[in-house]
Structure formats: C-alpha cells, structure tokens
Simulated scan of single mutants.
Amino acid sequence: MKKLLTAVLITTFLVLTLATAVSADEDLVSNVMVKYFKGSVETVGMAVAPDNMSNAAQAKVLAREGAIVDARAKMLEYIKGVHITKDVTVVNAMANSKINQSLEGFINGTYVVRGSENWEEGIYQVTMRKDIDEFNRVFYEKQSTEFATKPAAKETEYTGLVIDARNVDLKPQVMFRIEAENGTVVYDNTKALFEPAVDKGLVGFAPSVERASELPRVGDNPLIVEAINVSGEAGTVVVVSNGDAAVINRELESTKVFRQANVVAVIDE
C-alpha cells in the first residue's frame, strides 16, 4: 500500500507544484461516479495553472496534467474502499505486493473520456475512466481455485438471473454473493466458472429491470427475483427470501446460467 500511495503522492506533488487542484463545489463533490452498470469507474479531476505562467498554452498544458493527476488520485481513494468480499476491502488487500503492483497499473491505465475536457476561466476539468474487468481479474486470479470447475450439468428454461435490488441499499463487491434470508449461499464464485467470470465479472449491473433484461448476458428469458435485504459489513451481500432462494436453486443450480455468470443486479444509478 505504501508503495502505491507513495507513487501517486510523488506524481501529485510534481505536477501540483506547477498546477493546483481545484476544490469542487457541492454539486461537483460527487466526483467519484461509479458507473457499474457500464462496467467502468469514472472520476472528475480539476486543476488551475500557476499565476506566473507567461503564455496561455503552457498554462493550459500544466492545468490539464494537474487535472489528470487529481482524477487519478480520487480514483485511488475510491478503489481503496471497494469491497472484495463482504468483510475485506481493497485497502486491506494492498499489503500484498502483487495486488499492490496490479492496482498501481490499474490506476495508471485510466484514460480520458472523449469530450469531457473543458478549459474555462483558468480551470481545467477532465473525466478519467477505467474499465473494471481488469480490476476484477486482480482478485479473481487470487481466488481462482475457489471457482467452479465442472461444466453445466443440467438444462433450464431460463437464460439468466436478474436480482432487483433497488429497494435495498446494495453496495457492490468484487466477489459478488447472493444469500437466502437463512444465510445459505445462493450464488457466488463457487457457482461460476473462472474464465467467464474473469471475462465479464461475477455479476453485471443495470439501473432498471428493463435495462437489465436487454443485456446479452441474461438472454431473452431471465428469472427475475426481488431482493429483500442486504447483509455483510457494509451491505455488500444481496439477500433474497428463502422461497425465492429455493426457486433459484431448483432452476439454476449447476446450469449454464450460473456457470457462465449470467447474473445481473439492478441497483439505483
């Protein structure tokens, strides 16, 4: 963790000695926009150029670099708080040097969202984005032996599973998990094959049931179930009723739906 934080802080210092980050107003303080349903994470960075710049072109270049560093630093702060499992956050895992290095590469690999750059009244603003598939891979590979190894063993009429969690405050986690209200596991990484999970994540996210049903991963006939609660340290595990859990297990256990991670959770945008 110290190595990653040091790298970011050094870069921030070097650039911000030339371009100063801007504090956003209340409307822009939500500069970490988690677009899970788009499969990416976005942050907004802002910076101003030093007052002693002799020409506008140099001022703009320095302010842009400062805005990019600002956005990346904010993304690191967000990433540190993401839950890997219901009890472990990224910041806990960063003591592992391999994970630390992978996350450093993840942050450095962010890219500017086309059309997001704005230079106005001496303030440069830019939105940086990073697709989360690479982020998932870091942690899936660490727990690769816990994934399912046997292919689908039975057929089902359903092409996917949609969990409507808009009525509960679900906080997504990397190792996504569904439990019954009695605490038994309905779906997690042990139900899915490793490669499909790495390719698209254990779960997809959508802002509505309609949007979820349009996603190719759940097909044209998904089983739709409403969540009744969340559990875990910070509401990271979605809970369904015992009755719905029984239906899910009966219809989807050991099927392609679970093995191929054809699961989507609906959360508020």
Rank of each mutant, 00 (worst) to 15 (best):
V69F: 00
A71E: 06
M75Y: 04
E77L: 11
Y78S: 12
I79N: 08
V90D: 03
V90C: 03
V90W: 01
V91Y: 11
V91W: 10
M94H: 08
M94V: 15
N96V: 07
N100C: 10
Q101P: 09
Q101T: 15
S102E: 14
S102C: 11
S102L: 13
L103G: 04
L103P: 12
L103F: 06
T110E: 11
T110C: 09
T110P: 06
V112P: 12
V112M: 13
V113Q: 07
R129V: 05
D131C: 09
D131Q: 09
K142I: 12
S144Q: 15
S144N: 13
T145M: 11
E146D: 13
T149I: 12
P151E: 02
K154M: 06
E157I: 09
T159Y: 01
V162I: 15
D164Q: 01
D164W: 00
A165C: 00
V168H: 03
K171Q: 14
Q173L: 13
V174L: 12
V174E: 05
R177V: 12
A180G: 09
T190L: 03
A192L: 03
A192M: 01
A192T: 05
F194S: 02
E195S: 12
A197Y: 00
L202M: 00
F205W: 07
A206F: 04
E210S: 14
E210I: 13
R211I: 14
R211Q: 15
